[in-house]
Amino acid sequence: MNQHRILIVEDSPTMRQLLRFALRRLPGVEVVEASDGMDGLRKVTSDAFDLALVDINMPVMDGLKLISLIRGEERLAEMPIAVITTEGAQEDRERAIALGANEYLTKPIQAQQVLSVAKSLLKIG
């Protein structure tokens, strides 16, 4: 069975637990957590991930900055990124997509949405 590694970059422990809980239903998935953008950058550059779920509003380094830094790394240019945020405005969505996010989900999220997006980005049937 293929092992997929997913990085959750989210400052809220409640949301991290909720996302981890939802992703548990995907077979062969390992979840790693980061509590802010800087922590996420450290983890994503020192390890290999198949998908990153990134919040926008975070302390230390926000999600948009993190996405632009990830896309600046040649090795990570193709890694799928899904944004999960409270920011529902169209311009926020467009900004995130322009920076390199593949999907944009707004909170409150349903576990099914997360699963569906993760399956699609990980190309799990």
Binding site: S12, T14, L18, T86, P108
Partner: peptide, 14 residues
């Protein structure tokens, strides 16, 4: 802080 997180993220209050 946890209460704020729940109300923002799970309920979707602004």
């Amino acid at each position: 802080k946890t209460i704020l997180e729940i109300v923002i993220n799970l309920i979707g209050a602004e």
